[in-house]
Design a protein around this nucleic acid. Structure first.
Lengths: 341, 341
DNA sequence: CCGCCGTCATGAACCGTTTCAGCACGCTTG
DNA sequence: CAAGCGTGCTGAAACGGTTCATGACGGCGG
């Protein structure tokens, strides 16, 4: 209103108004105990009067330190990832750090752009769900001294810490469940194999089949989903409802995909509702509230993020080059969507 | 791997390796056409060899410019807000800007922390869903020259631009729909009145009642929800299922609340499934996929974010002090959850 | 051959902080 | 009274870039 949009006031303005040197103002800000009470009061008053806000760039340039952490997830719209982000944020807040969140959309270029942005800004660490298998860029970052933790991926190297969930085990549980229900033909709606969990969940599923002494190639059919959300899944699943070999059991690589499948069945073949077994993955909050409550493999999303942040903070604090790796175990939650054969 | 975690290389290192001055390196980076081809090649090669990444703090300190925008939403887990964030990001990406996203959890302190963080970092603009009615902090920011756009709130002043949805109209539509179905007693599960949309949606509901010539105080009962998510709603709604005056029509301030209500009915009073009319708000994607598909007031979430970002970019570019205000209209989407009286 | 001009590159000032050596001052101690 | 010490403050260097006035150099027209 009153103040015209003018230059931000600097520590120098404050010093002038308070009649002290800039060094003293800086001390008031950072080590108040070193400044005499009366001086401190005067400086604080000046700060208030000028509505002074320190310039983070200048501070960081000189001091080098920063309390911001960057995270890149595949898709911010997937509740699984927002829950992971929550876990990260909760841990960071406890250490007075802040999170800057970005979503790569599973797009290498977007990922690269954000990686660069974060590196240029000198974040004190990075938590990344990588888009593909090529960890080159991340290894480069790590080599340049940026602490990095892989999210939702096991790390193949000690150059990178990692926090993951055992996806093979998850696929195995889903497979055993469906086989136990009598299914001998299982469709897996899967994402690109460049995404490691997609591969692993399929591997787990096939392993379950093998353990029953069956032939995975005969039992499991894989169909790719263009994008890992409900819309993409619906598009990929629709043609399968037309033919004469309509699937009887579907294992979906995540819950959004499962929701897309359910939607498509309801739209195109309402007669089949309740006769196709569906198992999802993630156990997002609304899985239990769906038209057909979804059987799903639960992942400890919050813990995943929390722990990743913790590892990052520990590494940054110690500046120790020891990588930490943690693997959580998933847990099958059975609801009514997985019907017997 | 090979490189030990050493100091980031600087423009000076590049200059030395390429045998030029730092000014030339800077020119290669920012105005390549002013540098002779051969020199440019040599510098680029040096940059590659050193894996040089410019220091954003230094650049920003001197140049003042920045292409990062901050956004603060109430709850990152609410699909409505992630969709808004998507809209923002899509518009920003087109202008080569990047988004830094934060969630205030409807907590003034968290909001203040992020506001300060963003201001210290000198973001080129801010998009905020404010936690309360006190716009003081935001007006302060605006006065200090930070371009600010209110998200999902009409601005009471020209100091702040704004993009909003007409919540009174939304409440009105929901009310008319329920009244049209014959309901004469409507429960509204509402959030704190400090949140403007909560007030406005209630106002709209009451207005619908008045238009029918009925007494809002007799027809509408308001029950507060502690937190605006499914869990909070379930907790608030549970006791209402115990008494003898079980509600027959519920208007929920958002879809997550509606999901909580549905969940609680299913758990505690499955006999009442299908006999309590429920209307939600936002029309999030899974509203249509729920056990009882949800009637909801749709908001143009993506457009909201997109437009807000657009206004911000325009203001920052022109540095014009003219505030822009835009109000979108909501639209009722009827599904099966809103049963007749 | 001289003067002029355009092309490229240089070097230093500057952005707003933090940090640190050093100074002023007053008090204690021997 | 000299020496020593602790307290509280100052002033300047440094961080890593951008920007701009300046200058070197070669070519060209007269």
């Amino acid at each position: 209103m009153s103040t015209p949009a003018t230059r931000r006031s600097s520590i120098g303005d404050v010093a002038r108004l308070a009649g002290v040197s800039v060094g003293t103002v800086s001390n008031v800000l950072n080590r108040p105990d070193r400044v005499a009470e009366s001086t401190r009061e005067r400086v604080l008053e000046a700060i208030r009067r000028l509505a002074f806000v320190p310039n983070a760039s200048a501070r960081q340039l000189r001091a080098g330190t920063i309390t911001t952490v960057g995270a890149i997830v595949l898709d911010i719209r997937n509740p699984f990832f927002t829950e992971v982000a929550r876990g990260i944020e909760d841990r960071l807040a406890a250490a007075d750090h802040t999170l800057m969140l970005a979503s790569s959309d599973d797009d290498r270029e977007r990922e690269a752009r954000y990686l660069r942005l974060f590196e240029e800004h000198g974040v004190s660490g990075l938590l990344v769900v990588p888009t593909g298998d090529d960890l080159g860029p991340l290894l480069g970052l790590a080599a340049r001294g940026v602490h990095t933790v892989l999210l939702d991926r096991p790390s193949p190297t000690d150059a990178l810490s990692s926090v993951a969930v055992d996806d093979v085990a998850g696929g195995l549980q889903a497979g055993e469940h469906l086989l136990g229900l009598g299914h001998r033909s299982i469709l897996m709606l899967n994402g690109p194999h460049a995404i490691r969990p997609c591969r692993d969940r399929l591997t787990g599923l096939r392993r379950a089949v093998e353990r029953r002494g069956l032939d995975p190639d005969a039992v499991v059919r894989e169909v790719p989903v263009p994008t890992l959300d409900a819309g993409g899944a619906a598009a990929a699943f629709a043609p399968l409802l037309e033919g004469d070999r309509v699937p009887t059991a579907v294992f979906c690589v995540n819950d959004l995909v499962a929701i897309g499948v359910q939607r498509e069945i309801r739209r195109r073949r309402p007669d089949l509702i309740g006769s196709i077994a569906i198992v999802g993955y993630d156990d997002i909050e609304i899985a239990a509230e769906l038209a057909t409550p979804l059987t799903s493999v639960r992942q400890p999303a919050h813990a995943l993020g929390y722990r990743a942040a913790e590892i990052l903070l520990a590494r940054a604090a110690a500046d120790a080059p020891v990588a930490e790796h943690q693997v959580f175990q998933p847990e099958l939650v059975v609801r009514s969507s997985s019907v017997p054969a």
